[in-house]
Nucleic acid binder design. Structure first.
Ligand SMILES: [Mn+2]
Ligand SMILES: [Mn+2]
Length: 296
DNA sequence: GCGGCGA
DNA sequence: TCGCCGCAACGCGAC
DNA sequence: GTCGCG
């Protein structure tokens, strides 16, 4: 079958192939979901290199990350050349239009992952992420509490603006749009200092220990995604888990009412206003934040 | 999903 | 002509 | 240098 979108017709092969056994969610349903969310999703992922997390045989069989763009692509799929530093260059896909998003679904790309920088300044991130990873047996309420504390800290004390999304797994992501004036190393150092300050204030809630067996049942404040060439799951992406949970942007008041981190799915999603719509205009400089953080 | 490669 | 295979990579800190 | 981590 074919899907028509953005002035293109995209072939969906094996449309009835079941990618998510529970609930028999097919490739066609995945493609239609992405067609539906494209208007909200594209502005948030435009001009960022993507890695594809693909599952040609469904989520029960393993999947793989694909970073390099295939040699031959439809003309509507845009690509960019990125430096791999010492190891030359690589061509990567940009998901800049709805047709590309649907084409990715046909490639069995369940979850696009994006860079935290844009192609015109790949070394300079315009987003900073805090990844809140709770231990296996910790309720959602602690994660919500942690995210709200982090938000309060970022916005009230560091004068930044914070956005939150579910991950479709157990934790949440807190995303901070930043002015493009520092490289990844400096931004990560800032994130680390912030994570350490929060851990010292709330030692029973947070940890920044990389080692799992040293986390003591606390929420891991993971800042290591803030690096060159690192990726994070795209907002609105579907996760390769039974039920097809999605990484859904929420308002802070929606977060307070969240019942579980995988509460929203490809099927339960309904069109609404985008809580992240203002992200691209909510950019703040890290400069005053750095100054304030240093005084603590 | 698809190209490459060894049989 | 087939079946099989690969399809990312980075940085930090602990050892 | 290698391993755990995501
Ligand atoms: Mn996480
Ligand atoms: Mn993490």
């Amino acid at each position: 079958m074919k899907l028509r979108a953005g002035g293109h017709s995209i072939e969906i092969t094996h449309a009835d192939k079941v990618l998510f056994p529970k609930g028999k969610i097919t490739k066609e349903e995945l493609a239609r979901y992405y067609a539906k969310v494209a208007r909200l999703m594209i502005p948030l992922i435009k001009d960022r290199p993507i890695s594809m997390k693909r599952y040609p045989k469904g989520i029960k069989q393993g999947g793989f990350f694909q970073k390099n763009a295939p040699e031959t692509l439809p003309s509507f799929v845009k690509t960019t050349s990125v430096s791999r530093k010492e190891k030359g260059a690589a061509r990567m896909i940009l998901c800049n239009n709805v047709a590309t998003l649907i084409w990715l679904a046909n490639q069995n790309c369940i979850a696009p992952h994006i860079w935290l920088s844009r192609i015109d300044k790949p070394d300079i991130p315009d987003r900073l992420i805090f990844d809140l990873d709770p231990p296996a047996r910790k309720g959602i309420s602690a994660v919500i509490e942690g995210a709200l504390i982090l938000r309060q800290f970022l916005e009230k004390e560091l004068k930044l603006k914070a956005f939150v999304n579910t991950t479709g797994s157990r934790g949440v992501h807190v995303m901070v749009p930043i002015k493009r004036e520092y490289g990844f190393k400096e931004v990560r150092a800032f994130a680390k200092a912030a994570a350490e300050e929060l851990t010292s204030r709330h030692p029973k809630l947070f940890t920044h220990e990389v080692r799992k067996n040293k986390r003591g049942g606390k929420i891991y404040l993971d800042i290591m995604r803030n690096g060159y060439g690192q990726t994070v799951v795209a907002p609105f992406a579907v996760r390769p888990k039974e039920g097809a949970p999605i990484a859904l942007p929420l308002s802070w008041s929606q977060l307070k009412k969240l019942s579980s981190a995988d509460a929203f799915t490809l099927r339960s999603f309904s069109m609404r206003t985008n809580p992240w719509a203002g992200m691209n205009r909510a950019v703040h400089s890290l400069k005053p934040a750095l100054k304030n953080l240093h005084k603590m």
